[in-house]
Amino acid sequence: MKDQITHGLENSVTSTPSKISATQVNVHYGDAHAIKDVNVEIAPNTVTAFIGPSGCGKSTFLRCLNRMNDTIDICRVTGNILLDGEDIYDRKVDPVQLRAKVGMVFQKPNPFPKSIYDNIAYGPRIHGLFKTKADLDTIVENALRRAAIWDEVKDRLDAPGTGLSGGQQQRICIARAIATAPDVLLMDEPCSALDPIATAQVEELIDELRENYSVVIVTHSMQQAARVSQKTAFFHLGNLVEYDDTTKIFTNPRDPRTESYITGRIG
C-alpha cells in the first residue's frame, strides 16, 4: 500500500513533505481489531477525505490523529503517527498540547452552552494565546471571519451559541477550532447533521481553509468527498483499501472494492 501512496502523488503538493505520516497503525477496541495496518501520508494545505461504509474505521483512524481515542479506556493504538516528523504517541508528547495543534470538528454541532464570544475564546483562554482583551477580540473576530460567519453573528456575540441554526452552530464550532491556531483540522462528518444549504456553506468554507491548514475530513457522502477534497482514502473493514488523488479514486480506481463502493454496489 505504501507504493500507491508514493506513486499517486503527482501534483504540486508532492514537493512538500507530509504534514502527518502514519505507518502501520493498528487500533483495538478491547478484542475488536478496528484499524489494520494503515499507512497514510497527509500533505499540507490539502483537503484529505476519508470515505467508506459505516463501521469501516475511518472515524476511529481520524481520532487517532489527535489522540482523542485516549479518552476511551478500552482503546489501544499501536504504530507510528508523525506530525511534522514528531511521533505524537511518544511518551514526551502531552495529548492535551497535541490537540491544540490538531483541532477537531465533530459530527454533531456541539457549541458550549455559553455565549458565541466565549465559545470562540475558549481555546485561546485555555492556552493563553493573547495578552490583552483587544488581542482576544481580534482573535475571535478573525476566527469568525475565517469561518464565514462573522457577518451573521457580529451583532450578537453575547447571545448563546446554542440558539443558532445547525449550520451556523457548525461554523461556530469550526471557528472555535480555528481560534486555537491549529496546524491541522480534523472534521468528523461535519455536515451529516446539516441541511443542503448549510452543507454547501460549510463545504465552501472547508475549501477556503485549505489555504492555511491541512484538513482531514471523514464523510459518508462520496459527492462531498469529490467536491471538497484533493486526496481521498477509502477504508473498508478496518483496512485502507486505496489512497490516491480524488479525481483518480472517482474516475479510475485501482481496487475493485473501491469501484464497488463508489458505484454504490457495497456500503
Binding site: N66, M68, T71, V96, Q97, L98, R99, A100, K101, G103, M104, V105, F106, K108, N110, P111, F112, P113, Y122, G123, I126, H127, C173, R176, A177, T180
Partner: peptide, 21 residues
C-alpha cells in the same frame, strides 16, 4: 452530553479545565 466534553478535549483542554469550564 459527551459531545460537549469531546468538543473541549478536541480544543486541547485538560480534564479539569473541561469540568470547570
Amino acid at each position: 452530553p459527551q459531545s460537549l466534553r469531546d468538543g473541549s478535549y478536541g480544543l486541547g483542554a485538560t480534564q479539569s479545565e473541561t469540568i470547570k469550564r
